[in-house]
Write a protein that binds this DNA or RNA. Structure first.
Length: 311
DNA sequence: CGTATTTGACCGGCGC
DNA sequence: GCGCCGGTCAAATACG
């Protein structure tokens, strides 16, 4: 079941209001169930969140483009379309062959794949040359890991999120002067990958796409972590490093240590923090979302919010 | 010298 | 079947 975003959306992100001046955490899009809109909002489940209150910092907002997950529980989060899309504007995801909907990619399946890889690693190494010449047996289609992506206004391409990444590839992106970098989590047994590319529309925006779930706690506490971490020590006053906190379903050291209610709902295995599930995924495109007792005021200390407001 | 990055080649999926 | 393209591999290279 497709919850959201794929490369397809990424390609369409020009339709999205990726940059806005909303100082508060508000949706800039809608999230109709099981659909992909082609409206100007284009991307289901897109929302902005302030990720840096440090004036002058290169970071302004993290734009979570959405997620891609087959988790029904997660999907249920979006079963309440506040603003139903007109049928003419709705594209049924299942009927879109190019959509990167992932088929039931459970962690179990992923682990099996991983174990298989480990077992065969030695043999694979011995035959790596032959492998290139002899066509190996056709491997079954590997299920996609859950993915989510967000846009970060940053001058730095690679943002420090606390995890250690090893770059394993870089490719030129079609229709974009900026290359796409491929990273893999260096922790043994953790197959999380991420892609980092700069938006061709706005080169100040870095689009980071995470795939998979970390099987380990965050090894390094990033300096000056920003993002949705409601810790003033992370939000303000620590500039210079382009860091942010990635929502992770299993390990969220920055969330649960600060405000437990901001932790993730492991029961649903959702890549989103619970506060998204509880509140933010019932969006309205109207100004009702922007009322004074909006999200951030419940989440962040007022001082932080004040600092987080760009300009 | 160990580790990380670079970069060209390779592979598989997909559309024509 | 062929070419394009995204993603990955792995040898070469850079770096601390």
């Amino acid at each position: 079941m497709l919850a959201v975003v794929s490369d397809q959306f990424m390609e369409k992100r020009g339709e999205l209001k990726t940059e806005n001046s909303m100082p508060n955490s508000t949706f800039s899009g809608q999230f109709p169930a099981n659909t992909t809109t082609t409206t100007s909002y284009g991307f289901p489940g897109i929302f902005d969140m302030p990720c840096d209150g440090d004036k002058g910092s290169s970071l302004g907002f993290i734009h979570l483009l959405g997620i891609q997950d087959d988790n029904p529980s997660l999907f249920d989060l979006f079963q309440t379309p506040v603003i139903p899309s007109p049928p003419s504007e709705v594209v049924n995801t299942p009927a879109t062959p190019n959509s990167l909907s992932i088929s039931s990619s459970s962690n179990e399946a992923a682990n099996d794949e991983q174990n298989k890889t480990t077992v065969e690693e030695e043999d694979e190494q011995n035959q790596k040359k032959a492998k290139k010449q002899l066509k190996p047996k056709k491997t079954p289609k590997r299920p996609r890991e859950p993915r989510f992506a967000f846009m970060t206004k940053s001058e730095a391409d690679h943002l420090d999120d606390g995890y250690r990444w090893r770059k394993y590839g870089q490719k030129a992106v079609k229709n974009s002067p900026f290359p796409r970098s491929y990273y893999r989590c260096t922790t043994a047994g953790c197959g999380v990958k991420k892609r980092v590319e700069r938006s061709s529309d706005d080169q100040s925006i870095v689009v980071t796409t995470y795939e998979g779930t970390h099987t380990h706690p965050c090894p390094v506490a990033p300096r000056g972590s920003i993002g949705v971490m409601p810790d003033s020590s992370g939000f303000g006053g620590i500039g210079g490093t382009s860091s942010f906190v990635i929502p992770q379903p299993q390990f969220q050291p920055y969330f649960h240590n600060s405000i437990p209610s901001l932790g993730f709902t492991n029961a649903t295995n959702s890549p989103f923090p619970t506060f998204f599930q509880e509140r933010q995924f019932y969006p309205s495109l109207s100004s009702s979302l922007l009322r004074d007792d909006g999200l951030l005021q419940d989440i962040l200390p007022s001082q932080v919010r004040k600092e987080a407001k760009p300009e």
